[in-house]
Design a binder for these strands. Structure first.
Length: 677
RNA sequence: GCGCUCGUAGCUCAGUCGGAUAGAGCGCCGGUUUCCUAAACCGGAGGUCGCAGGUUCGAAUCCUGCCGGGCGUACCA
C-alpha cells in the first residue's frame, strides 16, 4: 500500500493541476512540523505560486476548491503564506492501521517499481590486521544499506573487498618466516616478541636501534642460508614443511601470533630504515637465479613483489603462507561479523587477490585507449586536468602502475568495476568508505566513464561517513595510541550490559542474562553509530550508548520488552489477547492512542527517506519517536485492566508497536530484541 | 596554495534538500509508584544556528567574503 504522504501528495497535486493547468506540480507533503498545524502539511502551493507569479494564498484557495479529500481528512485549512494543513480523520487512520497490521511481512512498506542489481562494496578489512574500530562504520553501515535495498526489492550483491594482496601481506609472510626460524632453529624462545619489546622501548634511540638491527640481520642471514636443499633460499628444510605443519594448528592461537609478528616486522623495518643494512634475496631472471643485495627495510616489499607473481611455481613458499594467513584471518573477521549480526560470509568475499590476473590488462587497455601515459616512471591516467590538481596546481594523476611495476588499489578498483558491471551485471555500485577517500573515488569513477567501462546509465556512488572520535574529541584510540580492537570493544559493551542486567534483574537464569547482555551491548554500539548522521564524526561513549534515557538501543529494547511483559500478564489473567486483537475494531479515543496510531502509520515514510539517501539515522529517529510515544501511551493507558471497549484496541497498538520496533531493529539494523530485560 | 567538509542549547547530536514560534537526549530545577518492568513518565529553564553581506513572500538550509576546526592533494589503502 502507498504511504500517507504519497496518497495526500497525489490528491493535492491533482487539485493543483486542475486549478492551474500545470503538469504534475509537486505538492511537497510532509508530516506537520507542529501538532497545531494538524498531521500533515503541504508546502507546494507557495512554490507553484512563485513560479506562476501569483498570490500564494489565493492559489491555495483555488486548490482547496478542487481538492477531494474528505474521505481522508477534516476540511483542509490554509495557513500563513499558503500552507495547506491536513488533519486525518480518525476512522481513516483506523482503516490504514488495520491494513498495516494485517501486512505482517512488510508493515505497509511497498516494493520498488524499478528493481536494480546493486553491488555494495563494504567492510573490506585488511587480512594482516585485526579488525579495529576503523572498520566498524563501513561494516555496519554497508550492512544496513544492503538490508534496506534488499527489502525495497533490489537484487543486492554484497562484496567484501578484502585487502589480501597488499604490502602488509608481505610483512606477515616475513613474520611467519621469523616464527618458523624461532621454532625450528632457536628453541621456540619467541625471540621476535623480545625484539619487538626492545625495539619499542628504544624508539628514537638511533644507536641502540642500529645495534639491535644488526643483531637481528646477522641471525636472519644465517637462518636464511641454512634453509635450502638444492637451490639456495628455497625453504625446503624449514619454511615449507613448517607452513604445512601450521595448517593443523589451532587457528585463534595462531592468529594471535600473527598479530605480533606483523607488528614485529613493521617496527623492525621502520627502525632500520636508512641504516644501510643489506640482506640477500633470490630472484629469477630469464630462468636463472640471481642473488642481489637489497636494503633490509625493503625485504617485505620484495616479498610483496613475489606475491604478485604467486602463481609461478618458484613462489610456492609465498603462496602457501598467503593461503594460510588468509584463511586464519578471515575466520577471525567472520567471528566479528557474526557477533555484529552483519550478513557477510565467505560467499561475499571478493578481495584484491581475486583481481590479480586482471590488472595487467586494465593498464594495457587504458594505454590502448590513449588514456594512460607514462609520467615520472609511473603509468597514469589524467582524468580531468582542470578538476584534479596537485599542490603545485599541476594535473593530478590517477596512478595505475608504479614505477617498480607494481599495481595499486586504483588498478584493482578499476578491474573490480569492470567485473561488477560485466560479470555481476551491476546497474548501481555503492562504495561504503570513509570520506577521506572521496578524491580517489571521484577519479576512479571519472576514469571508468572515460574508458567507457561504466556507461552513463550505471550509477556509481561513494557513500561516505565520518570518523569515530574519543571523548577527548580526537580520533578514537587506546591510551597507548593504538587502534581499538573491535573484538575488545564488543567484549566491553557486553560486559557493561551484563552488569546492568545483574543489577536490575538478578533472578534471571545465567544463560538468559548472557543473551540479554549481548543483545543490549552490541545493539548499543551499532545503534549509537546508526543514530548519528552518517556523514558527521561522532563521539564514542559507552555511558551514553548504554543509557536507558534517550535515543539508544536499550531504550528501544525496553519498550519492546514492556509489550511482551503486558502479554505475559494478560495471559496470566486468562485473557485470550490474540483473539481479541484479531477481531479488533479500532476505537482510538485517548490522545496517546491517537499519537501512537498516527506514528505507526508512518513507518514506510521513514523507510523511504532512509533508503533514498542511505540515511540509517532516519530509521533510528523513527523508532525512537515510536518508543517515546509508546512509553507515553503505556503510562497513560492501562492495557490489561482496560475496559472491554478499549482493551482490544490497546492490545493491537501494543502488538503493532512491538512488531514495528522488532522489524526496524532486526530487519534493517541487525539489532536483536529481547523478551525480558 | 587549491579542493572537500564541518561550525546549531553547558555537553552529545537531529533538522526529510527554501517553509510557520529551530528540535531531541544528557546535565540542571520541579513533579509522578497500593496499577501491565520507575531501566519509565509529566512539566520547566536554557539558542543572535561561527561572523558579515546578498538572493526572496520566507534562509540553520542557497550564493559571496571572512574567522575557526578536520580531511585530502604522484607512486599507502
Amino acid at each position: 500500500m502507498k504511504n500517507l504522504t504519497d496518497i495526500l501528495s497525489q490528491r493535492i497535486s491533482q487539485a493543483m493541476e486542475v486549478a492551474t493547468g500545470q503538469n504534475c506540480p509537486d505538492a511537497m507533503v510532509t508530516a506537520a512540523k507542529d501538532v497545531r498545524f494538524g498531521d500533515y502539511q503541504s508546502n507546494g502551493v507557495m512554490a507553484l505560486a512563485k513560479k506562476l507569479k501569483t498570490n500564494p494564498r489565493e492559489l491555495a484557495q483555488k486548490v482547496i476548491a478542487e481538492l477531494q479529500i474528505d474521505d481522508i481528512c477534516e476540511g483542509p485549512e490554509i495557513a500563513g503564506p499558503g500552507f495547506i494543513n491536513l488533519r486525518l480523520k480518525t476512522d481513516f487512520l483506523a482503516k490504514v492501521l488495520l491494513e498495516i497490521n494485517s501486512d505482517t511481512k512488510r508493515l505497509g512498506i511497498e516494493q520498488t517499481e524499478k528493481k536494480e542489481t546493486v553491488v555494495v562494496d563494504f567492510s573490506g578489512p585488511n587480512i594482516a590486521k585485526q579488525m579495529h574500530v576503523g572498520h566498524l562504520r563501513s561494516t555496519i553501515i554497508g550492512d544496513c544499506i544492503c538490508r534496506l535495498l534488499k527489502f525495497a526489492g533490489h537484487n543486492v550483491i554484497r562484496q567484501n573487498h578484502i585487502g589480501d594482496w597488499g604490502t602488509s601481506l608481505g610483512k606477515v609472510i616475513l613474520g611467519l618466516w621469523h616464527m618458523c626460524m624461532d621454532e625450528k632453529r632457536h628453541n621456540n624462545e619467541l625471540y621476535y616478541t623480545k625484539e619487538l619489546q626492545e625495539l619499542k622501548s628504544n624508539i628514537g634511540n638511533k644507536e641502540k636501534l642500529e645495534a639491535i638491527g644488526k643483531r637481528i640481520l646477522k641471525l636472519h642471514n644465517e637462518d636464511w642460508l641454512a634453509d635450502f636443499e638444492g637451490e639456495k633460499g628455497n625453504g625446503e628444510i624449514y619454511f615449507l614443511p613448517f607452513l604445512k605443519e601450521l595448517k593443523g594448528r589451532k587457528e585463534n592461537k595462531l592468529w594471535d601470533k600473527i598479530i605480533i609478528l606483523y607488528q614485529y616486522v613493521n617496527l623492525l623495518e621502520e627502525s632500520v630504515d636508512g641504516m644501510n643494512l643489506k640482506t640477500t634475496i633470490r630472484k629469477k631472471n630469464d630462468g636463472q637465479w640471481e642473488y642481489p643485495q637489497i636494503p633490509y627495510e625493503s625485504l617485505s616489499r620484495h616479498i610483496t613483489t613475489m606475491l604478485q607473481e604467486i602463481d609461478k611455481i618458484e613462489n610456492g613458499q609465498e603462496k602457501e603462507a598467503w593461503e594460510l594467513i588468509t584463511k586464519i584471518s578471515l575466520k577471525s573477521c567472520e567471528t566479528i561479523y557474526e557477533r555484529l549480526r552483519v550478513n557477510l560470509t565467505s560467499k561475499d568475499e571478493c578481495g584484491e587477490s581475486f583481481y590479480r590476473n586482471k590488472l595487467a590488462s586494465v593498464v594495457e587497455e587504458l594505454q590502448d585507449l590513449k588514456l594512460a601515459v607514462e609520467s615520472d616512471g609511473a603509468i597514469c591516467v589524467f582524468p580531468d586536468k582542470e578538476k584534479f590538481k596537485n599542490k603545485d596546481g599541476e594535473p593530478l594523476p590517477f596512478i595505475i602502475q608504479k614505477s617498480d611495476g607494481a599495481f595499486l588499489y586504483a588498478t584493482t578498483d578499476l578491474a573490480a568495476i569492470k567485473y561488477r558491471i560485466n560479470e555481476l551485471k551491476a546497474e548501481r555500485i555503492i562504495y561504503v568508505t570513509d570520506a577521506r577517500q572521496k578524491l580517489h573515488f571521484e577519479m576512479l569513477f571519472a576514469v571508468a566513464r572515460k574508458a567507457g567501462w561504466a556507461s552513463d546509465d550505471i550509477k556509481l556512488e561513494h557513500v561516505t561517513f565520518g570518523s569515530v572520535m574519543g571523548e577527548d574529541g580526537r580520533p578514537f584510540k587506546t591510551r597507548s595510541g593504538e587502534n581499538v580492537k573491535l573484538a575488545e570493544l564488543l567484549d566491553e559493551a557486553g560486559g557493561r550490559a551484563r552488569s546492568v542486567v545483574e543489577e536490575k534483574n538478578p533472578d534471571l537464569p545465567a544463560e538468559q542474562k548472557i543473551k540479554i547482555a549481548n543483545a543490549v551491548g552490541i545493539g548499543a554500539i551499532k545503534y549509537a553509530d546508526y543514530s548519528n548522521n552518517r556523514t558527521s564524526d561522532y563521539v564514542f561513549s559507552f555511558d551514553r550508548m548504554l543509557a536507558m534515557e534517550g535515543n539508544t538501543a536499550p531504550y528501544m529494547q525496553y519498550a519492546y520488552a514492556r509489550v511482551k511483559s503486558i502479554e505475559r500478564k494478560a495471559a496470566e489473567k486468562g485473557i485470550d489477547f490474540k483473539t481479541e486483537r484479531a477481531n479488533c475494531q479500532l476505537n482510538l479515543s485517548e490522545p496517546q492512542e491517537l499519537e501512537l496510531a498516527k506514528h505507526l502509520a508512518r513507518y514506510s515514510e521513514a523507510f523511504e527517506i532512509a533508503s533514498a539517501d542511505y540515511k540509517c539515522n532516519f530509521i533510528t529517529s523513527y523508532l525512537y519517536e515510536l518508543a517515546q510515544k509508546f512509553s507515553s501511551f503505556y503510562n497513560a493507558c492501562p492495557v490489561v485492566i482496560a475496559e472491554k471497549a478499549q482493551r482490544p484496541t490497546r492490545l493491537l497498538l501494543c502488538d503493532l508497536t512491538a512488531r514495528t520496533i522488532q522489524h526496524g531493529l532486526n530487519e534493517f539494523l541487525g539489532i536483536s530484541v529481547i523478551e525480558k530485560m
